[in-house]
Design a protein around this nucleic acid. Structure first.
Lengths: 360, 360
DNA sequence: TAGAGCCTGGACAACGTTGTCAAGCACGGC
DNA sequence: GCCGTGCTTGACAACGTTGTCCAGGCTCTA
């Protein structure tokens, strides 16, 4: 009846007054009901076709498919999610989407999610605990199946109800604060210790350490690695050689210049992450003679500088991949106790770490 | 009432019968109904509290809040979205989340979305048209309010029903194929022309061009810019100096080596994007004498190489910001015809582009 | 003191989908 | 000729939220 198949697209029936009073609907799109009406079949049959369920005759299926294309129908996944419970999506809270260190991690997580048929929602905390919280909880409200978090804050008890409710949660790069949860980390302590030991092996005694804010776990661990390496070699540490704080270029620049000046300057620098390393390199490049430097995190083009930059590299993609795989294993029901996975770092020798002490 | 608020967390509280009687539901999350029962109020009142709507006495509000915390309730946004029609989320399809060029773009989009209270869903097309399509349509099924796409494919007619249904759509970095839609681009043609002219001004006559696949709009435009600059100076172009194709290091390396060898090698290279530039730099770094080079896209550390790398820089963050702002303007109802915004590029002179021709 | 108005709270019907269940039908075996 | 069997199909009730609308109870005024 009146199924004249010439309605060009007209998704929503214009009938304005339903008894319950429809709320103002913005993009009215065709629904399965519209498709069913047009194809002259039942609602459930459309659902079956859309989901590739068996039990539909080729002829019926064709009619439905035609109606779908004609109307430009696309299944509303919000409704589907509501009905099914699972969303096939994971949330990733990281520190800065634009940071070259986190970008490959992001990509690796996406890749694993894709293999599992899940979409990725993400956001940057900008190293702000409150924003991390907002993001993570917003993702939970969207009912992500799982959550991967690079912690900015130090207290993750706010996630307890979510985890209890079944949101698989894995922390990456830094451990969770005040709750027991899965975590995938790099060996910051061991990596820094190895990097600093490398400088010591090349004759350095006065080594500066510039790192991120001390409340950040990796920064603290790397400093601990620095101290361990110095202690291993029985070298004293003058506290003026150690500087933790913001990685803003101005601060790093000032600290590097301070350490490299004066009557007894440091002869080498160990820099605590990629952002610090870049700024430190800009400082040392201006000096009359090169300064030995080892940085945590690899840098693109590090091999092309002269000397090449010796770094302690983490495998960011592997961090992400490992975390995501752990997450999906949890989702598939692995109910063991929370695990902490620690991935090794790798010292990449390129020249800057092998320079001898300058005027010593 | 036995509202003792001492239930530690217990999402599905095992206590079967509180006076209002929270239904003992296992494996599920508490809903507004549960909260209402526990607080001894109606469903809509809970909704009002959760959404900060007026018309609730402080006392009632407190009771509801207590129930919310006690049960660990979190609003189910899928249901909310289903009811309200708007999802407060935008989808971003880019080429590679891990590419240092796209990461800031991603971040900029996120930032604008955040300012508008929207979440960001994203994915990498890996330069594969089919995957771009899958992602974009999956986002549409999630009923994103808007879509930002860095096209991989050349035919976007598949998005027509979505756009007609009200999904605001903006293309970035490259224009849409076969449909009329908003696009935010960099001036690839002008940028390349300027970069190549710069080399010509420094005495080069034989200049190689290595770029991305010719089907990619930016690659084609940059090649066009190269040819225009050569034509402007009345210089002939030997087709062996031009190479478009995959940006895989092996190919780029081979092409660069080929162009720089032989009896009449090119004396300078213009590289079509950041990935090509990096590989080309690795090749030229091994040569006995430096080769003049200008690259499209800026690189981190480009200033620290010697010589510094002269580049034609695009402002990726600005691309993202502009696109996202345009998107939200559309969402707020700006119904003008699709626009094409073109952002200028900037030549950053650092040394590599000013080297004179070698053995000419 | 009664009537009018305001404020709070709750019942109910959507939103678009999927799971359950039963009806309708053709076919084949006894 | 009858009934069971297998298949396709559709009616209906959820899922958890929000918009509408109405019922009380309260205050304020005449």
């Amino acid at each position: 009846m009146a199924d004249s198949a010439d309605t060009p697209r007209a998704a929503g029936s214009p009938a304005p007054a339903a008894p319950g009073g429809p709320p103002p609907r913005y993009g009215t799109r065709p629904t399965m009901k519209d498709v069913a009406a047009r194809a002259g079949v039942g609602l459930k049959t459309v659902s079956r076709v859309v989901n590739g369920e068996p039990g539909v005759t080729p002829d019926t299926e064709r009619r439905v498919q035609e109606a779908i294309t004609a109307l430009g129908f696309r299944r509303n996944d919000s409704a589907r999610i509501l009905r099914k419970g699972r969303t096939a999506s994971v949330g990733l809270v990281l520190e800065d989407l634009a940071d070259p260190f986190y970008a490959p991690l992001n990509r690796a997580v996406e890749e694993v999610a894709r293999r599992h048929g899940a979409l990725l929602i993400n956001g940057s905390s900008a190293e702000d605990a409150e924003r991390e919280r907002e993001l993570a909880l917003a993702f939970c409200a969207r009912r992500v199946d799982g959550l991967i978090v690079i912690p900015a804050g130090g207290d993750h008890r706010y996630l307890e109800p979510e985890i209890a409710a079944g949101v698989a949660t894995v922390f990456v790069d830094r451990p969770a604060g005040l709750i027991d949860a899965d975590a995938v980390l790099s060996d910051s302590f061991g990596g820094a210790r190895e990097g600093v030991a490398h400088l010591i092996a090349h004759g350095h005694r006065r080594i500066g350490f510039i790192g991120d804010q001390p409340r950040i776990h990796t920064a603290a661990e790397r400093l601990r690695g620095y101290r361990a390496a110095m202690a291993d070699a029985s070298l004293p540490v003058d506290e003026s050689w150690v500087s933790l704080g913001s990685t803003a270029p101005e601060r790093v620049r000032a600290e590097a210049e301070r350490m490299l000046a004066g009557p007894r300057p440091v002869t080498a620098l160990f820099t605590g992450n990629n952002r610090v390393t870049v700024t430190a390199l800009r400082v040392t490049a201006r000096l009359p003679r090169p300064v030995a430097l080892v940085g945590f995190d690899d840098l693109e083009l590090a091999d092309l500088l002269s000397p090449g930059v010796t770094v302690v590299a983490q495998d960011a993609a592997r961090l992400g991949r490992t975390a995501a795989e752990l997450l999906f294993r949890r989702l598939e029901g692995a109910g063991e106790a929370p695990r902490r996975v620690e991935l090794p770092t790798r010292l990449i020798v390129r020249g800057s770490g092998e320079l001898p002490p300058a005027g010593d």
